[in-house]
Each structure stands twice: as structure tokens, then as C-alpha cells.
Amino acid sequence: MSDVGQVGRTRGGRYGSVYVAVTALLCSLVAVGLLAFAGLQLPRTVERDRALKEAVPCRSVPREPADCLWRQPFTVTAIHLWSGRRGDGIHATLISPGGGKWRTEFRNDGPVLSGLDEGDRVTGTIWRGRLVRISADGAVQVTENSPDALPESIVALLVVCGPSCLVLAVACGWRLRSPKERGWRRGPKLTAALAAGLAGAGLIAALVALKFGLPLWAMSAIWLPLAALASALAIAVGRQTPQERQTVPVQKTAL
């Protein structure tokens, strides 16, 4: 190989190493940030959820935000049942008996909102000055103001991004062991593919759980077999892929 080609390969290896190092650093920061976010927000949200479940009905109309539950009828208007490109989201406007308007957002359109028309009546539950639930015909649906809806979103973010970012950081760190090589060897390449598989498994688990309103533990229950399948597939491919062969330079003998 000529000197020019050797210099180009060395520069390409250096640039690739810098790119991989930056990717590994970003993935590690994202994973650590998610864990820190969950550590700060999840206990607080769970505490609010426990306070809501232990709240008792109010004895009279609360004049300021209170820890008790106040239920009153609302008239439904301005129903929007899909998330538009402009980020409108799923929402409806509820009108109280006194004429006050409550713009209420929802995570999905069921089981109550999808069966309503403008002018229908629902019963709303107010807690700490926020409308947290609506009910009609025996069905109950929580709003985005309810702490019931927040833990699922945090867990979904962790399931989708947490494991995949950690595995991708491992793959990048593995790749950095050979900084002068331009390509990826089998080990780090399969590890990066596993990170993509774990992200896909987390996305599927989050979408299924959020779509059907499953409980908090359902995301992990759905993610675990999918992650095991992705790991088994990566191991199987790794065992079937031949090892990289090292090229031994052939020395020319003088005649």
C-alpha cells in the first residue's frame, strides 16, 4: 500500500473514531439523563397518584384547589378525536353548569370520549383544581391532568430509549478498541444491531400498552419477550457469522 493510501486510511480511522466516541458519549448521556429524570419524576408522580386514589369526596363545593374529590356534570363540546399534524392532540371542551369552559386533553379517545357527541352530558371529577376524570354510562376515562396518565409516559420513555442507548454505548466503546480501523468488526456491529432491536421492541411495547390503556407493568411484560427474542436472534447470527480472517502479508522471495 502506498504512503498516500496509508495516510488516507489513518485519517478515515481517526474521523470514524471521533464519530463513534461522540455517539457513545451522547448515548451514555441520554441513558443517564433518562435514569435521572425517572428518579426525580416517577416517585413524585406515584405519590400524586396515591394521593388521588386516597382522596375522599368533598363535603361542599371547594372554593380553591383541594385534596378532596368534587364531581359535577359537564356538557361536552368541541370534540377532537385524533392527533393532527399541528399537534392539536385529542381534546374536548367541557362546559360547567355555571358556564365555565374546561379545555380537557386526553391520551386516547376511549373508552368515554369516542362515544360522545356534542351536547352530551358527562360527570367530571375535579381534584386540586384540575379535571382529572370524566365518566358516562359506567365508563371512566382519565385526562392528561390526572397523575394516572404520567407514569406510563415515563416508563414508555425508559423502555424505548434506556436499554438501547446503553447497549449502543457499549457497542461504540467496543468499536473504539480498534480506532484505526475504518469498518466495524462483527462484535460491535451485532451489538449495535441489538441496540436497534431493543429500541424497536420498546417502541412496540409502548405503543401497544398506550393504545389499549394497559396498566403500568404491561410495558415491561410486553418488552421482555421481544427483547429476549432480539437478543437470541443477535446471538444466533453471531454464531453463524464467520470470524474475520486476518490477512498475512506474503513476502516475496528474491530469485
Rank of each mutant, 00 (worst) to 15 (best):
D3P: 08
D3R: 14
Q6L: 13
R11N: 11
G12E: 11
G13N: 06
G16S: 11
S17C: 13
S17P: 03
Y19T: 13
V20D: 05
V20H: 09
A21M: 01
T23M: 12
A24L: 10
L25N: 02
L25I: 06
S28Y: 02
V30Q: 04
V32D: 04
A38R: 03
P43K: 01
R44A: 15
R50T: 07
R50W: 08
A51V: 03
V56A: 14
V61R: 13
V61I: 11
V61T: 10
P62S: 10
P62I: 07
E64P: 04
P65H: 15
A66W: 05
L69Y: 13
R71C: 00
Q72H: 06
P73I: 07
P73F: 04
T75Q: 14
V76A: 01
I79W: 04
I79F: 06
R85G: 15
G87Y: 09
G89V: 00
H91N: 14
T93G: 09
G98Q: 15
G100K: 12
W102R: 13
D109P: 00
D109A: 07
V112G: 07
G115P: 02
G115K: 13
G119T: 07
D120P: 03
R121W: 09
G124S: 02
T125G: 01
R128M: 12
V132H: 07
I134P: 00
S135K: 10
A136G: 08
A136D: 12
G138N: 01
A139Q: 13
V140C: 04
Q141V: 04
V142Y: 14
P147R: 14
D148L: 05
D148W: 03
A149L: 01
S153Q: 09
L158E: 10
L158M: 13
V159Y: 02
V159M: 15
V160Q: 01
P163D: 01
S164M: 09
S164K: 07
C165D: 03
L166N: 00
A171G: 10
C172M: 08
G173Y: 03
W174N: 09
L176T: 03
K180L: 07
R182T: 14
G183Y: 10
R185V: 08
P188T: 02
K189M: 15
L190G: 00
T191C: 11
A196Y: 10
L198R: 00
A199H: 15
I204M: 05
L207G: 10
K211R: 14
L214K: 02
A218Q: 05
I222E: 00
W223A: 15
L224H: 06
A228P: 09
L229C: 08
L229G: 03
A234S: 07
R239T: 01
Q240L: 09
T241S: 08
P242K: 07
P242E: 08
E244M: 07
R245M: 06
Q246F: 14
V248N: 06
V250M: 12
V250A: 11
Q251P: 08
K252N: 11
